[in-house]
Design a protein around this nucleic acid. Structure first.
Lengths: 119, 119
DNA sequence: TCAACCAGTATACTTTTAGTAACCACGCAA
DNA sequence: TTGCGTGGTTACTAAAAGTATACTGGTTGA
């Protein structure tokens, strides 16, 4: 992001130079990992694949609809992979991708920051 | 956060141990710096205090109402300080606090992560 | 046979967030 | 006196996010 400044023209009217139009990297990044539950989902997948209903149970407060919606979003964004373990007795697990794993560092820092400041 | 697990009782019913009830540090932290525009506001205050209308101009897409709402929230959360520069011709500037500054590290990392992955 | 599990889907609803546009009272300068 | 500046407020709308409950269609185990 370029440092934005504010200038004045000859008539004294003000305008912004390099205004932060909506999608600066921070806003964009937030939209990837900032959604409700997304951090928690990634966090709980870091030890290995987790089945759908187990995830819903772990995320106590979230409804299945929420979990499903978030997982679909995250699959599209490449944070998470859906693997069908078996048909007949249907079984599905969600696994974190390399990309998803790369975001854990940010989440980890956010977590320490939050804990350090008693948030 | 304790690692959550899922167990079964003698009847085969499943339940989550240590479920991630809503406010784990990650979710809580997100709520502090995750709101729309909040990252950008902090970012633009890091070089020094900025006047209200200048901030609104820099944040091109955001309306005064949005900016004002966010600033009030952030003032309550202690991320930002409102200083009245002068009465009579009213002038106000917003300054980042030490607490606000402490969050810049997280934002910085989020920014590099976003840029590194072409988000 | 019954109940509980699996992985969702459907419907309906409420709440929160985002956003527009217009307006206020005041000051300053041409 | 008109227009722009200051720092907001008010009223309203639209869209997103979230909750709650029930349902499908099949499987598994007591």
């Amino acid at each position: 992001m370029t440092q934005a400044r504010v200038t004045q023209d000859q008539q004294g009217r003000k305008q912004a130079l390099a205004p932060c139009l909506e999608p600066c990297p921070i806003e964009r990044g937030m939209r990837i990992i900032g959604g409700k539950w997304k951090g928690s989902i990634l966090w709980h997948l870091k030890e290995g694949p987790v089945r759908f209903n187990d995830l819903a149970r772990i995320l106590g407060g979230a409804s299945k609809k929420m979990v499903n919606q978030r997982l679909k979003e995250m699959e599209e964004q490449g944070l998470v992979r859906r693997q069908v373990l078996s048909d007949r007795p249907i079984a599905v697990a969600y696994e974190i991708t390399e990309f998803g794993r790369s975001s854990l560092a940010v989440l980890e820092q956010l977590k320490s920051w939050a804990e350090a400041h008693g948030i």
